[in-house]
């Protein structure tokens, strides 16, 4: 610390976006938590190592109730990175920081005359569900965060167990299969030309029009815009079939293709 304060070397601040999962609890919490337990039980490790944001907008909560909820989540190994939609009086020391936005992070420019540590400690003004992180380096430079990216991602190889493809910018197309234990999270639709055996989440940044297409349905989990279905909830008739999945209001609909 003292070192960096003395040193005139400016540090470089970089933005980095992460796709966070937003949990929107509903009252009564006991029911909502039971639903969460059910999801966690059926999809082990789902919340592990993911950035998770708690959206409490529209809930009239006391600070005690919010603390209680966070404790309940912690007991389930769900660590909350930030809170969205809470009154300022609810937050403060000991609570996860406030988050707003949901837009990509803009450039972060270090002010020349500021002590580097101060600059580093200053949070970016608009942190989206994508979070801006700062990392030090030796050259003063303004870094652009995300280059304009194509709205679709094509994967020509099978997606293997343990692999995770996250593409909030748009559609994902996989020419091979998606293995059991693999997952794809897309901002748009997901097209799989092989067998779908893993987990896929389409429209993950709030797009109810996203769809899922696959040549052979054997999925562990299907989700569109946060609404999900597990393998056991799916119509057994659809197993092994070429299938299209879409959202009709709050219901996930699926039908065979052709």
């Amino acid at each position: 610390m003292t070192e960096s304060l003395k040193s005139p070397t400016p540090i470089r601040l970089r933005g980095r976006s992460f796709l966070a999962i937003v949990l929107s609890p509903e009252l009564p919490f006991s029911n909502w938590l039971a639903g969460l337990d059910d999801l966690a039980r059926r999809s082990t490790g789902f919340f592990l190592g993911r950035p998770i944001v708690l959206d409490v907008a529209g809930l009239d909560l006391s600070r005690e109730a919010l603390e209680g909820l966070i404790e309940e989540l912690q007991a389930r190994n769900v660590r909350i990175m930030g809170i969205e939609g809470a009154r300022a009086s609810l937050l403060g020391p000991g609570m996860p920081p406030e988050m707003r936005g949901g837009r990509p992070a803009g450039d972060i420019e270090p002010a020349e005359d500021q002590a580097p540590t101060e600059a580093a400690a200053k949070p970016p003004a608009a942190a989206p569900a994508a979070v801006a992180a700062a990392s030090p380096a030796s050259v003063p430079q303004v870094t652009t965060v995300v280059p304009p990216s194509p709205a679709s991602l094509l994967i020509e190889t099978p997606v293997r167990s343990g692999q995770s493809i996250v593409f909030p910018e748009g559609d994902v197309t996989v020419l091979g299969s998606v293995a059991s234990g693999a997952e794809i999270i897309a901002g748009g639709s997901i097209h799989i030309y092989g067998a779908l055996r893993g987990r896929v989440m389409a429209g993950s940044v709030g797009n109810p029009d996203a769809r899922i297409f696959c040549r052979k349905l054997e999925a562990e989990l299907l989700a569109i815009d946060g609404l999900y279905k597990m393998a056991d909830d799916m119509d057994p008739q659809l197993r092994g079939q070429p299938v299209q999945v879409w959202l009709d209001g709050d219901a996930i609909k699926a039908t065979t293709l052709n």
Binding site: T157, R160, S161, G162, G181, A182
Partner: peptide
């Protein structure tokens, strides 16, 4: 088979 699939991912 699932573990092998995982290993193939690492090989790649």
């Amino acid at each position: 088979v699932r573990d092998s699939d995982r290993i193939i991912g690492l090989l790649d």
